[in-house]
Structures are given as C-alpha cells and as structure tokens.
Design a protein around this nucleic acid. Structure first.
Lengths: 243, 243
DNA sequence: GTATTTCAAATGATATACGATCTTGCCTAT
DNA sequence: ATAGGCAAGATCGTATATCATTTGAAATAC
C-alpha cells in the first residue's frame, strides 16, 4: 500500500487522563494524533481490528471514530474495503494557501479595530524575534513564531466561521509542510519586512480593505516564492547539462 | 425538549435505490435528509433505538451515522446523554452571509476569466427572468433563480476548497431562511440591477479585485437590507405609540 | 509461461446481549 | 411545601458472535 508506514507502538491504551471519554472518542483522538504526527501517513491502510487490539477495545468504537474522521475528510472509508488515511492532492498546498490568503486577509482586517495595544506590542516583539533568528536561521522556529505573530492579528476576528476557516487552513498547512521557509529561505527576510508594514497599517488605522489585501498578498507572496522555487527545481534537463 | 417535533413516519426503510449503500451510509443520508427538510428541527432529540427501529437496522450503524453528522456539526452528541440536532446560533444568518460574501466574491472573481460566452448569456437570461418576476413577486421563485444566476458565475472557480465553502454557505442559508426576499421585498429590484452591473464587469474584462468586491458587496447589501428591516421591526415601543 | 479458478485467511459490517448511565416519578423526612 | 433518596424504566456504549466481502496465494488449465 503506497505511503504505508509502520505505526508507532508507544502509548497504546487510553490513559487515566481519558477516563471521562467514551472509547470511540478516545479512539478518534488517538488515530487523529497519529495522522497529525505522521505515524499514519497519507495512503496508510487503517485496519480496524488492529487498532481495536492496540487500544484494547472492540471494533465498534473504532468504526465510530473512523466515521468521524471520514466526515472531516482526513480518512477515506470504502464499503467492504476499509479505511485509509486520505491522500494529499499534489496541488493541496497551493489550494490551501490560496484559500487561507482569502480568509486570513479578511479575518485580519475584521480583527484590526479590536486588537489591544498590548497585543500589537506583542506582535512587534514577535516580529523582532523573527528578525533576530535570521542570522542563524531555523525554519521550524521561524514558522512557529510566524504563526504566533499572525495569530495575534487574526484571533480577535468577530466572525467565528471565518476564524474557524483560518484555523483549519493553518492546521492543514502544518500537515502538508513542516515549513515552507526551509524551501525558500530568502523568503523569511521579506516576510519580516511585510509583517512590519502590516503592523504599521493596523496601528495607523488604515482602511479595512487595505489591511485585508496586505495580509492576503503577504500569504500569496509566500506561495509565489514556493512555486517559483519549484519551477526552478523542475527546470528542463538542458539546464542540468550546462552545469 | 425545546424545538422537538414529531418525526415524519413516511419512507422509513432503505429503498431499492440504496442497495449499494452500507446501512450506516443509508442511516446517515436518512437522518441528514430529515434535518434538511425540517422534520428534525434544531434541538430535536435523536433517539438511537427509535431511529434503528424505524430503519429496520441495529443501533450500531445508526451510531456511526450520528458520528458522521456530529463531525459535520449538524448534530451534537454527548456521552451517555445522546444526540440532538444542533441548535442554530441566533446570529447564524449574519455570520453565514458575511462568510459567504467573502468566499463567493473571491470565487466569482477567480471564475470570471473562465466563464464561457454561452454561460454569460445564460446568466443574463436568468437575470431577465428575475426582472420579469418582479411584477408578481414570489420570494421562493426569485430565490431559486437567484442561486441559479450566481451559480453560473461561481461554479467555474478553479479552487475546489473555496468552491466547497461557497456551496456550504448556500446550503446553510437554505436551512436558515427560505428566502430573505420575503422579508425585504424591495431588495429584489436592487438585486437585479446589481446582477446586471456585475455581468457588465465580467464581460468587460474588469480587474479581478473589482469583480470580487462587487460580488461581495452585492451579498452584503442583502444582509444589510435584512438587518435594517430587523432593526425597524424591533423599534422601541414609543414608535408604536405614535401610530 | 500465462491466464483462470479455487480456496483459505484476513478483514469488514452489523445484530444481539449485557452492563453502565441518566431521567423521571414516587415516597419519606423535615 | 420542599428537599432528598431510591427504584424502575429508558437509553446509551460496547463486547462478542456471526455472516459477508475482499484479497492473495496456490493449484489447475491452456
């Protein structure tokens, strides 16, 4: 089965912390965690009986858990065939970034009038920290700080649906890419500058549309940098022959 | 139990058309259809054993079906208590319209370069039909044509995630309101005019942002008309005393 | 050697039984 | 009249057993 990885055998049973959960909820969280941490990679076959044995429960709650994951799109579940972790569309990163640019731009604009002075100061501090890390660049840290920065700006969005879509977008990115910045290192420096400009717009009380487009284009610029890098990496063999 | 309505006893068993479905899938579709058509209204208690009896299956596939609906947010399912149809947030219409204005605006703009001449002609015909119905106004017909019109404009959107969000928004609106136009009848005439202007932008090859904002603001104008009507309907008792 | 058939094993789907939990109504004490 | 306790009934959650379907390996036919 393509993409199949042996599951990690550690932490197999519901812990004491999960005493208040039904077995199906515990199974749901267990499987979801393994998908999120990569133990179960895209295409991996989820064998209900095995999972049930590992968790020490019957297949009935495991089936319920898989149904929930199916409804969330994380798993495909075919009658009489079984379940597997959903494959990732090769264009998924691009589609997700496009969608996120839209909803995050709007969330940032809607949140702007509601952000406290303290929060804005915090955002500047994070961006300064990001600038500091450029000298000895670690993509994982930069990416973590990047989310932290943007979270300050969008979490005050008053529309819970849009905010939820932003969260989903970020979660999906995490599953797709540990960090884009490892692929396009030069992008990090530009990002920090764009953050600063975005903060200036917000603190300067700029027009909502301007803020929205700035936040959106910031995300799209990261996508563009990645796509440009990919196009270069996939250049025709003639380029390679020159070297 | 608040909002409880007796379920419609017709069409209780999976039909021959559903032979290829698992029992859990059939139960899922059955319950989902009853929520969609209002037989199971918000807050209605879904008793697993009853549904199983009505469908002629055991509770096991019914539980799987409810898990899927839970993951989609249509149902709340509490351990040892049971399941009920999710309640509707009083602000849901506003939140949904805001979100839809955002994603539909973007979908319309992204689809614009991809719409065929035939499709654009079809959109104009629908809008003309909508204008014709203004003389003897029927909100339900107008709303149906309205969706048809907008579908022509957004279905060519190349980003499947954004398109899915548009579909979800329209589905959600359908569940919340049969038709906004029954509440704000004057809005229909303005809508038709705005459709025409939007079509002019698209056929004129206007800038994507202009198209997006036009489509978004069109949806927001309907929301604003509704909210203004609500505010007027809830005016203080003094107003009533004057009359 | 290749294609087809057969069969056993693995896995899926779900009914039934049973223990767990919650709700409701009745009774008793204050 | 109100509060608390208890039991019965309703319902939930899940283990187990059983039947259904699929998969893969071995045997057979050409």
């Amino acid at each position: 089965m393509a993409g199949e990885v042996a599951p990690d055998a550690s932490t197999l049973r519901p812990t004491q912390d999960q005493r208040g959960l039904s077995k199906s909820q515990a199974a749901y969280q267990w499987v979801k965690a393994r998908i999120a941490d990569g133990s179960y990679s895209p295409g991996y076959r989820l064998v209900l009986g095995q999972i049930a044995k590992e968790l020490g429960v019957s297949v009935v709650p495991v089936r319920e858990a898989i149904r929930m994951l199916e409804a969330e799109g994380m798993v495909t579940f075919e009658r009489n065939i079984g379940a597997q972790v959903a494959m990732i569309d090769p264009r998924e990163y691009e589609i997700t970034m496009q969608t996120l640019s839209l909803v995050e731009g709007a969330a940032t604009a809607m949140a702007a009038p509601l952000i406290s002075v303290d929060a804005l100061r915090r955002a500047r501090e994070i961006n300064d920290e990001m600038a500091d890390t450029l000298a000895h660049f670690d993509p994982a840290s930069f990416t973590r700080l990047n989310l932290e920065f943007h979270s300050v700006l969008f979490e005050a969005c008053p529309n819970p649906h849009i905010l939820d879509l932003v969260h989903r977008g970020w979660n999906r990115l995490r599953a797709l890419r540990e960090s884009t910045f490892s692929f396009v290192p030069g992008r990090a420096r530009e990002s920090v500058a764009e953050h600063s400009a975005l903060l200036d717009l917000i603190t300067g009380g700029a027009d909502a549309l301007q803020i929205e487009l700035s936040a959106r284009n910031h995300r799209l610029a990261t996508l563009d940098a990645f796509l440009a890098q990919q196009a270069q990496a996939n250049a025709p063999a003639q380029k390679g022959a020159d070297q």
